[in-house]
Design a protein around this nucleic acid. Structure first.
Lengths: 357, 357
DNA sequence: GGTTCGTCTCGAATCGATTCGACTCGAAAC
DNA sequence: GTTTCGAGTCGAATCGATTCGAGACGAACC
């Protein structure tokens, strides 16, 4: 045990005490290079006596040029970000792989619209790579900064910068596939509830000029386009003001459903499971039964234990996505330069869709 | 822009180009010490030309003995930990304060029962402090390791080691207070749903030997004791097998409620809001209305947007708790040695409690 | 006996900054 | 005209490891 306030022992102290050189002591702890059994024993004993807990990570990192940490940039307040179970699933898969390296995950919250503030937060941080997770559409000032520092970047679609290695989903095809499922059931009056098209979008109908057809890699845009590939370019769509949120879904649901029956859609295709759950609440508040009076679909394939339905959804395999992300990061740190990946998705039919009455 | 594969420019390169010494260049970036306006300008220009994005964080950290990151140890898989909205609120408050330092939060998942594995994960990480969040009862091997390294530790009650600075709640008093509210409403047959007493606890009735009255700082233990202070030492209590979880609440709820009416409790006091929500689901599955047929209370005071009730609960002000934790960390890094803090809690009466019929 | 080889150990250079004390120089004070 | 002072700059030491090339030594081989 080390006396309080006293300087922590260094490798040099240990080496001195064990009667070996610093380089030999280093070899003992790193395990590289041959060391005689007896020498190793002496060094370890000295370390124990002095309360040396291993090489100073900072010094070691400096020498090796590795910090052992990757940054995870989440947009908006942490609380909001972590309300999204899909995001958490991705993070979980990521952590699973990184633990084996081992590499830590440094959380970096980026209050949206905070502009360059994130750069000041990032600048003093030693990171081996950065993952953009839980980020919405739009440019991100962090990208330029990190690119200049030569830090490898990864994301799940947004930001869509070419300097970022991506694990994507064919959002448009996936959006079309689930829309087609609804269409095949016989629905004709179908509405869409989207996540915001732009960082500046406000809740309500999606304005035409917010949809940029070249941005299909942005989930909200791609899924909307897929939906319209099936139900036509003018099929009704509203967006939430706050990403994938239950409240956003409820509000959108009320707006869509609290109308005379003949105008009311018989199905709602939502861009996330959480939004879909919100829509279902809105429907039930209005006395509509799901799926008898209204079919609802989600997107993501997350587990919503409190939802008394099995949602029809497009399973994105969030955890697996995180694992893939982790593998890419690992490979990159090993020196290979991985290419973008496209992940398959899978339609999972639950109990929230049925033919219209 | 730096050519790919080329070495990143260092402070030395910048100094050379600007025609000043390295020390002067350092002063320009750190802002300490006087530098002539013109010199500063020259150095910044040189930096821009070379694509120098600021001093290497690793080198800087080594010199200053600060890494700019604190560790956040979460027990169990990330996914599980982040399912707990209270934990997220705390993290959110913590982040809010740390952002201003600025200091990053390094997430360290500690699969429960993994024993010393966490030490291997921790050892190569440079951390200025560590916060134990989302940890259950029981010893934690990380504590000894971090203590030996002289890294300041903080927690919200568990682990309860003396080497850790604590932000606590008087769990027992809080547990008693909410129990008393239920008692005052007139309930006499009241059951308790607890989080696990021990890391090894399994779902079901709480065995007497798992309750150590000296461990009132452990939330599950303290709250149970508080409950029994009001309803007597033998008042029925079951525990979940997996902490604060909705499913755990549902399972416990079914066990407690699916019995003949005369044996059925008229109120259930749960140790967390999420558990309470699970109990409510169980009740509704059995055709019981809340609060008419069954009163249910929670604990934490989190926001459960999907729950169609306002839960009667003990508000722990999670975000504020996180902020306090952050302030303690900051103070400690500034050199003062903060003392433990006890946070007040507040009973919030909602729509899930009523007098028994 | 002289090479060769392998094992083990070591000294010195290095990673990229920060910081302290010393030095220079021009302006102000006496 | 000297002394004093402060602003600005710099060289060198330092943070605590890792790593490379070289050296020592004993064993095996011809």
């Amino acid at each position: 045990m080390v006396a309080r306030g006293q300087a922590r022992p260094t490798l040099r102290d240990v080496a001195e005490r064990a009667g070996v050189s610093v380089s030999t002591a280093s070899l003992v702890f790193s395990g590289k290079g041959p060391v005689a059994e007896a020498t190793g024993e002496r060094v370890r004993a000295a370390a124990l006596e002095l309360g040396f807990t291993g090489p100073n990570p900072l010094a070691s990192s400096l020498r090796q040029g590795r910090s052992g940490a990757i940054g995870v940039i989440v947009e908006g307040r942490l609380r909001m970000a972590f309300r999204d179970p899909f995001a958490i699933a991705v993070l979980d898969g990521l952590a699973e792989v990184l633990e084996t390296v081992p590499t830590g995950m440094l959380l970096i919250g980026q209050p949206s619209g905070s502009g360059d503030a994130v750069v000041h937060q990032l600048a003093p941080l030693a990171l081996d790579a950065v993952v953009f997770s839980l980020c919405g559409p739009g440019e991100n000032p962090a990208v330029a900064h990190l690119a200049a520092r030569g830090i490898p970047m990864f994301s799940t679609g947004v930001p869509g910068d070419r300097r970022i290695t991506q694990v994507r989903v064919d959002e448009r095809a996936a959006g079309a596939a689930i829309a087609r499922h609804v269409q095949d059931l016989g629905h004709r009056r179908v509405a869409h509830v989207a996540m915001p098209m732009l960082p500046t979008s406000v809740a309500g109908p999606v304005p035409g000029d917010e949809v940029d057809p070249s941005e299909t890699h942005v989930p909200s845009v791609g899924r909307l386009l897929g939906f319209r590939d099936v139900f036509g370019p003018d099929a009704p769509a509203v967006q939430t003001g706050d990403g994938s949120s239950f409240e956003g879904g409820t509000i959108a649901g009320r707006a869509l459903l609290d109308v005379p029956e003949r105008e009311r859609p018989t199905a709602v295709v939502a861009q996330s499971d959480v939004i879909a759950a919100g829509v279902i609440l809105a429907a039930e508040e209005l006395g509509l039964r799901v799926p008898e009076d209204l079919s609802v679909t989600g997107f993501d394939g997350v587990d919503l234990p409190w939802l008394p339905h099995r949602l029809t959804t497009m399973d994105q395999h969030g955890r697996e996505k995180g694992r893939i992300l982790g593998t890419l990061v690992r490979k990159r740190l090993d020196g290979t330069r991985p290419r973008n990946v496209t992940q398959p998705v899978e339609l999972r039919v639950g109990t929230t869709t049925a033919p219209p009455r």
